[in-house]
Simulated scan of single mutants.
Amino acid sequence: MASYLLRRLLQSIPLLFGISVLVFLLMQMTPGGPMSVGEGGASGATAAQLERLRGRYGLNDPILVQYFNWLWGVVTGDWGSSYQTGRPVLEVIGERVPTTLMLTLTAFVLSLVFALLIGVRSGIRKDGWFDHIATALTYGGLAVPGFWLALMLIFIFSYSLGWLPSSGLRDLRASHHGAGAFLDLVRHLVLPVLSLLLVSIAGLARHVRSSVIEVLDKDYIRSARASGLPEGVVIRKHVLKNASLPVVTIAVLMLPELFLGAVITETIFGLPGMGRLFVESADLRDYPVLLGILMIAALLVLLANLLADLVYSRLDPRISYE
């Protein structure tokens, strides 16, 4: 296993290099530039001041020189400084990571639990009333855009009913401590988590249902039932374990998808996470921060694929990477 992990990590290096080239070139091809907004351009700075800023950030260097200077900084741990605040990129991103992790991991765990419950029940009771209702709801969830769902949740539960706050992580009009602060945080997270949860459950539940139906048709399931094993034992020990294999990849790769979904969710609900930082940095042409977020997203996708392979080997002893 150690040799496999080392091999996969080494294989990731040229892939990350290619991704870094692509995202850097995309930043260079973006209309406008960092000196056209924020510090300088839009504030009426003179041409001499803008030229000094370009020299300060190395924007007058050839593209290859800019790229390799940035890449060397990434390798050595210096990801550059924000054009807007002058603070280190890793420090700016690090402040937003806890909010994004709290949002995405909560949505991931809950969506996995509910998708398994719905998908297994639908697969076992195929063509029953529960299956028909679940199928209609999951197809509806797949068809609904995430941003529209978030706006509808705000309209219903915040604007119309007034049950939940519509933005932020805490109530700025009150000072909460201890359990009160935790409950206030939970109230602010309900709608953002729900908007991610409903969309992700729909796709995953369909995969779970299909996998369960496929496994139930296998000969070893019929043999287990014919041998007199209780139905609950057959489902737990044989159906769930074997049906989980194709679902693992879908579930693990949900993490990067939830991260991308957080870009819209955090922006709509005003959450101070990496997704909202990405939108703000794009508006301000803050290229170092944008590049940092994109490279972290690429690394997250690679790690998710590696985690899926490791889970495969744990679930199915026939799979070996030695």
Rank of each mutant, 00 (worst) to 15 (best):
A205T: 13
H177D: 11
M274I: 15
E266P: 06
F182K: 01
G146Y: 00
L185I: 00
Q28F: 02
Y83M: 07
V97Y: 01
L169Y: 03
G141I: 09
L299K: 00
H177M: 09
G162W: 12
L194A: 08
S3E: 10
P317H: 04
V252S: 15
G41Q: 07
G178R: 05
V89S: 05
P317L: 04
L149Q: 02
G123I: 06
H177N: 12
N69S: 15
Q49M: 06
F182D: 00
F108C: 03
I13S: 06
G275K: 09
A42F: 03
L253T: 08
A45S: 07
F269K: 00
K126Y: 15
L116I: 14
L153D: 03
A150E: 09
L299Y: 00
V190R: 01
A202F: 08
L302C: 01
L310W: 03
T99N: 10
I19W: 02
L169R: 05
G58K: 09
V247F: 13
L216T: 08
D286P: 04
L197A: 03
I235G: 08
L284I: 03
L112R: 02
F130D: 08
G203I: 04
P192W: 06
L299I: 00
A115R: 04
T265V: 13
L116S: 12
V289W: 09
E91H: 11
T265W: 06
L137K: 03
R52Y: 03
V248K: 12
D316T: 10
Y139K: 05
S313Q: 12
P256F: 13
L306M: 15
F114N: 02
A304C: 10
R314E: 04
R170I: 15
I93Q: 04
T138C: 10
T99P: 05
L5K: 07
Y57S: 07
V248R: 09
F182S: 01
G270V: 00
L161D: 01
D78S: 10
V248G: 13
A181V: 00
G44R: 07
I213R: 14
V97A: 02
S36R: 12
P317I: 09
E95C: 00
A47Q: 11
L255S: 13
L9Y: 05
V190E: 04
I213Q: 15
S12I: 00
S211Y: 08
N60T: 10
V215M: 13
I213W: 11
P165K: 08
V234A: 14
V120A: 06
T106E: 05
G180C: 06
L306P: 07
S81H: 14
H188M: 05
H176G: 01
W129Q: 07
P317Y: 04
G275E: 10
D217R: 15
L183A: 03
V75S: 11
R170W: 12
L255E: 12
L64S: 08
E39L: 11
S175H: 13
L299Q: 06
P246A: 12
G270A: 02
T138N: 05
S166V: 09
L191G: 03
R318M: 04
D171L: 11
V120T: 14
P34S: 08
T100W: 07
V247Y: 09
F182P: 01
L291I: 08
K218N: 14
H238P: 14
I63L: 14
L71P: 07
I201T: 05
M254W: 13
I296T: 01
F155R: 12
L59I: 04
V120H: 14
G55W: 05
P272A: 12
